[in-house]
Write a protein that binds this DNA or RNA. Structure first.
Lengths: 364, 364
DNA sequence: AACGGTAACTAAAACGTTTAACTATGAATA
DNA sequence: TATTCATAGTTAAACGTTTTAGTTACCGTT
């Protein structure tokens, strides 16, 4: 690997042996050629020395590395990538329809832990847009243009042609909460989470349980199916008037749907929401209707949003382990990048969820 | 600029005239040479045609561009950057001490809007880490290594040597909520926000107002000073027992400090919190002490976090215009990148805030 | 003395662009 | 007719690396 340069100092005029273009005003970059001249060896030897190859004399290697340090040498990522076809750059695909992808706690938090692990391993993260310069291109083309070594896809419209063509390519792609045959993904255990929370409500005596779900997606399907199956397993009938589609993280819609549920002739005793934000909005609707969440009507969220940790009453919810999801995704990515064979069974990795018991589900 | 390739198709074998390295398995990249051969011109002409230079015959330009499209040509960012010293890549420095920088609504939201504007203008965003490969380097060195065209710095320890050396460099840097002489920044109008909210509380009859502030920073200083000055301007005395340091976005600490304030012999009638999360925690502490936020003790937040939009009671708070901050930062960045002269007076751009009146400040 | 082997190094090509300098052609001008 | 000029193209170098193939020089064997 390269030389640690603890502090970047200006290159002393005395050691500069050739004209190097200024990368920025006043910033002269030292190249491998400068080191070669200073050490009286060829650039090939310098390259090998800096990369710790073994066909270079230890004494020479030492001398080269010291000179590199002394001159403040930094490798040029572009030149290296051009030659090796490896950028040590991972593309991040995280764009929801409203360009608000980063603002969803669930995804930004996954990105944060993914980032930490990847950076530790020498990779940088670059967002993939749907343009190159000012022209429109597909995500896949953008990836080729930037030559990323791999892609993390999350919070994106997986069913779009654009994303599908990326997933179908030979690029290493790890997707979050989306499973595709032969591809690699990390998913929160949505089926189990929904099962847990449904059983919890049933266990506290609830029979008439409403289920609000978000936009169509694999996540939504997994949760909806788990809900229906759990209800059936407990011989409880599901009233389709209580199973409504809302939108993830959309409090207004959740508020309205809650009002609608409360207006039912036979209203539910418990409402399962697609996320915590929606649950909070639902609680407000309940209060506005003159009732108390957790008393007349029980409420359950999803996510385990940290903002709610300190809020009263504590929301009963499913915590998704975003940190672990990010780490798992990074691990999978690193294995792909190292061309490790990943057994069929490990292509999809489910991350455990956790039931956070608050005070919003009444014991009937 | 370049050719729009609406869909990336495999290169027909017939048109491939030379061996090109596979960038990934099965992905043969078409280069400018392929186009040159196919069109019977030199690579120089192809380059000029694709870049819409004017010393190329319109007919030739047309032919080259069509061929490029037909062959599925994509420019190679690395090669181009190596030659031109322009990457069209902006470094993002957004790392708090706990690697949770992206999870702060304020910053992720700024990043989101910054990203949209920069991408529209042909720039990509890459996170700057403090490593190159597996070795530690300074942020500045990392920027040189990746050859970013500019850097956005936010949510970072501005006072550290590492960040200071970046700010002191000749790289175009735009900082958010941190002002440095001769440098470019966008800042939320913290002084004005605090003044507004303090005057609002005073206007509702509050005299004994507590002020909780976060970690030492320019933001904190601006807010604290504004608070003290506003109080003084209204001839109200400030009790230093009511002016306490907490931590941004740290509900537990906020909870404890609130308890401490409530235990004061002469307790405050209103508490100003450093952010909405802290305010929510404070409200819980107030409830836990058997009181009602907005009645016995009033509460004010800061940020205008959207999660709270649907929560009852509505928190009175200052909304920071994160979207505009991101856009402004992008505009400043673009001007710097185009080497536009930015007048002294526009180096620091303050973004207006907004008072969101909720129900948590009692009229005395 | 001749040979083979190895360690340490070098020369040069290559990655895919851009661009400065040059050339050829023909049209316009003096 | 000779000169200038503009247009449209070409050649070749360069950006900073990595890497293949080759070259020494030296040592130990036979």
């Amino acid at each position: 690997m390269y030389i640690i340069v603890s502090e970047s100092k200006p290159v002393p005029e005395s050691v500069r042996t050739r004209d190097t273009a200024e990368r920025f005003e006043g910033v002269l970059m030292v190249s491998i050629k400068d080191i070669a001249q200073a050490c009286g060896v060829s650039t090939a030897t310098v390259s090998k020395a800096l990369n710790n190859r073994n066909d270079v004399n230890p004494a020479t290697r030492e001398r080269v590395q010291e000179t590199a340090k002394a001159l403040g040498y930094l490798p040029n990522a572009m030149a290296r990538a051009l030659k090796t076809n490896r950028t040590y750059n991972i593309g991040i695909l995280m764009v929801d329809k409203a360009d608000r992808g980063l603002q969803h706690y669930f995804f930004s938090s996954i990105l944060d832990s993914f980032k930490v692990v990847m950076e530790r391993n020498g990779y940088d993260l670059t967002f993939i847009s749907s343009q190159i310069g000012r022209q429109a291109y597909s995500y896949y083309e953008h990836c080729l243009y930037r030559n990323v070594d791999g892609v993390l896809a999350a919070c994106v419209d997986f069913e779009s042609d654009d994303v599908q063509s990326l997933l179908g390519s030979s690029l290493p792609v790890v997707s979050v909460d989306y499973i595709k045959d032969g591809k690699y993904s990390v998913a929160s255990d949505n089926a189990r989470g929904t099962e847990m929370v449904t059983e919890y409500a049933i266990g506290r005596g609830h029979k008439r349980i409403a289920f609000l779900f978000g936009e169509n997606s694999q996540v939504t399907d997994a949760r909806k199916n788990a809900f229906l199956e759990t209800m059936k397993a407990h011989d409880l009938e599901t009233d389709e008037r209580l199973i409504l589609q809302g939108k993830y993280l959309h409090p207004e819609i959740s508020y309205k749907l809650t009002q609608q549920l409360l207006a039912e002739p036979e209203r539910p005793t418990c409402i399962l929401y697609p996320d915590d934000i929606c649950a909070v909005a639902g609680m407000t609707a309940i209060r506005d209707a003159g009732m108390t969440p957790g008393k007349e009507v029980s409420v359950v969220g999803y996510d385990g949003h940290p903002v709610l940790r300190m809020m009263g009453p504590h929301l009963t919810t499913i915590r998704q382990d975003t940190e672990r999801i990010g780490i798992r995704a990074a691990e999978t990515m690193l294995r792909l990048l190292q061309k490790q064979e990943i057994p069929e069974s490990e292509r999809v990795s489910f991350v455990d969820v956790q039931l956070l018991e608050g005070e919003t589900v009444a014991q009937l």
